[in-house]
Amino acid sequence: MQRLEFEMFANEILSRLPTKCVARLRCVSKLWRYELSSHLFAIIHYHRMANNPYRKLITLTKSSIDLHNLISGKVDISSRKIISFPVDTCLSNLTILASEYGLLLISIHWLPNELILWNPTTNQFLNLCDKKPRNFFDLREDAVGIYIDSSNDLKILLLQRRMDDVVPRVYSRNTCQWKTLTLLKGTDYDSSLYWLSSGTLCNNVLYFPSPHYWTPAKSYTIAFDVDSETFSKVSIPQSTDVIGRQTNP
């Protein structure tokens, strides 16, 4: 009962506090740290802060990771603050792939390549690549997407292509485990098919454009329904020349 009462207190009262205050309150006790680190609290806090006119903008350069205040859609240059990345690597090796609820999905493209889920507020991170040789992240060959399912579980979809074979895997933040899905059958994933590294989420569907380098007519988009966790193939309309030749009068 005491824990349930504190959970309600955290979700209704503490979730209205600024992010920096919440980070400090996590040090009060183990109970406070557990509840204020939960995925449910993160979602509630994110939605409350989304209505705040004062937001944060993170920019990544080759020399620093900068944090700016974003006020009414404009960047406050004077508020610049440099933050550190928790993994020891050159910043030029980092690529921001996607973000959701204040979490960043970042690729470290070096040997071995890694996929990092990072919370810039708490500076906590999780390396999503296990030690198996085939399960590292390849920025040139693989694609990723991040989303929230119907149970408010943050998940990451990873499409790994190895030797023209694509294996889709989904990571659950609630269970901290990967599971393998079934991709479309009969689809050509040869080396001339170019992947974009991050998917676009729209109406609970992740879209991965897959333009064909040599034959544009073979281009298509892979659509992933986050509710049913199934894939479909969407054809890309072919462009036509609609610009007529200009003639002199």
Results as ranks from 00 to 15, higher is better:
residue 92 S to L: 05
residue 72 S to N: 14
residue 26 R to G: 15
residue 1 M to F: 11
residue 60 L to H: 09
residue 115 L to M: 11
residue 159 L to W: 08
residue 132 K to A: 03
residue 80 R to D: 06
residue 216 P to D: 05
residue 117 L to S: 05
residue 196 L to N: 11
residue 231 F to Q: 04
residue 131 K to M: 15
residue 142 D to A: 07
residue 4 L to N: 12
residue 153 D to F: 00
residue 137 F to T: 02
residue 135 N to A: 03
residue 21 C to G: 03
residue 6 F to V: 10
residue 159 L to H: 07
residue 72 S to R: 12
residue 235 S to D: 12
residue 196 L to W: 07
residue 101 Y to W: 03
residue 203 N to S: 14
residue 223 A to E: 01
residue 228 S to T: 14
residue 188 D to Q: 10
residue 205 V to R: 08
residue 140 R to L: 13
residue 32 W to Y: 03
residue 180 T to Y: 13
residue 234 V to P: 06
residue 185 K to L: 01
residue 38 S to T: 09
residue 240 T to Y: 00
residue 153 D to P: 03
residue 104 L to D: 06
residue 7 E to T: 13
residue 172 S to G: 08
residue 83 I to F: 07
residue 130 D to E: 06
residue 194 Y to G: 07
residue 122 T to G: 05
residue 118 W to E: 05
residue 20 K to Q: 12
residue 63 S to T: 09
residue 125 F to I: 02
residue 165 D to L: 11
residue 15 S to F: 08
residue 54 Y to L: 07
residue 204 N to E: 11
residue 164 D to S: 13
residue 154 L to R: 11
residue 239 S to D: 00
residue 67 L to C: 08
residue 62 K to C: 14
residue 36 L to G: 02
residue 84 S to R: 13
residue 83 I to Q: 07
residue 191 S to Y: 12
residue 8 M to W: 03
